[in-house]
Design a protein around this nucleic acid. Structure first.
Length: 308
DNA sequence: AAGACGAAAGTGGTTGA
DNA sequence: TCAACAACTTTCGTCTT
């Protein structure tokens, strides 16, 4: 590779995620896609489940899910074909075409609208192209399985985006999705859970560390503080403080402690706001961090004061 | 006066009978 | 389907800087 980008030209962040599958370098701070021109030798899409994977590898025309007909544009026959058919074939032809038009017009019309909405929200959140593609694919599958029925199109779009972000390790909070899409938080959560369950998509619980970079840059914290908080997070994982807790709360608390230790104090409220949790949650996690890990002493040398 | 801390009560979601 | 439960929030009073 020629020159490797070291810093994000947009925000100066140093947390770059080099995604070889996609040939992209993504800034984890602001979501900017820095380089898309690297040659991609890997397969065109990720595999959802093994059977699809077998069939899809490197074959056929380039396919994209961000266009409503997936770039294929297949139709069942034109009039010219009719002349060459007779009898049973002819009946079959009509049946197929009727069927096709009934299904595909409905689905395609829906997709066209939905993908426009998806792009809007995605660009608002500055999500990388790969996430956009992934969510478009999820949405397409959802429509084909009739999962949108009884739900608003927008909420399914938001759910698909949320899922795609998590799969690509650039998680956004439900609050952010909610703000960008105008859908209620709990509604997004509901459809997200429903869609992923129905489609059999497994998503690992998101790692608190994935939030650090973005929160830190929102708070204008130094790179040292960032890596310190990552370090704290790792210890916390070992001490089993992380399971069952909301990842954003843990990330926020780790960041808060790290900021204190580096003399870059932020108020609990500031941290709470960017992380989308309350001060109370930060306090609880913070307290756990203090007495489970022995961070007290490191803190004490900043403030050589009293014990409790 | 603002921030940190903690108690108490409330909310929405998960789990297990 | 219902109740118990854990995590998180809201609210509010008190202490610290």
């Amino acid at each position: 590779m020629a020159e490797l980008v070291k810093k994000c030209p947009e925000c100066g962040g140093i947390n770059l995620n080099w995604n070889k599958d996609r040939g992209e370098i993504i800034c984890k701070d602001c979501g900017l896609v820095i380089e898309e021109k690297m040659v991609d030798f890997s397969q065109e899409w990720r595999e959802f489940d093994s059977e699809d994977g077998e069939r899809r590898r490197r074959s056929g025309a380039p396919m994209t899910y961000t266009q409503y007909d997936q770039g294929l544009g297949t139709e069942v026959g034109q009039k010219a074909d009719l002349l060459r058919l007779e009898g049973r074939d002819r009946n079959k032809f009509f049946r197929l075409r009727k069927w096709q038009s009934r299904i595909s017009t409905a689905i395609e019309r829906n997709l066209k609208l939905a993908l426009a909405e998806l792009k809007r929200v995605s660009s608002y959140l500055k999500l990388p192209k790969s996430v956009e593609e992934e969510s478009a694919r999820i949405y397409t599958l959802a429509v084909q399985r009739g999962l949108v029925r009884g739900r608003s199109m927008e909420s399914v779009v938001a759910g698909a985006l949320y899922a795609a972000c998590r799969r690509h390790d650039v998680p956004r909070t439900l609050d952010e999705l909610s703000e960008a899409s105008g859908i209620e938080k709990k509604e997004i959560g509901r459809t997200y859970r429903f869609v992923t369950r129905e489609l059999g998509i497994t998503i690992l619980p998101s790692n608190p560390a994935d939030y650090i970079a973005r929160f830190a840059s929102a708070l204008k914290l130094s790179a040292e503080t960032q890596s310190k908080s990552i370090e704290i997070l790792e210890k916390a994982q070992k001490a089993e403080l992380t399971s069952g807790r909301g990842p954003t709360g843990i990330a926020a608390a780790a960041l808060y402690v790290a900021a204190l230790m580096h003399g870059e104090k932020r108020t609990q409220r500031e941290v709470a706001d960017v992380a989308g949790v309350t001060e109370v949650t930060i306090r609880n996690r913070y307290k756990e961090l203090l007495d489970e890990l022995k961070l007290d002493k490191e803190l004490k040398k900043k403030k050589g004061k009293k014990r409790k």
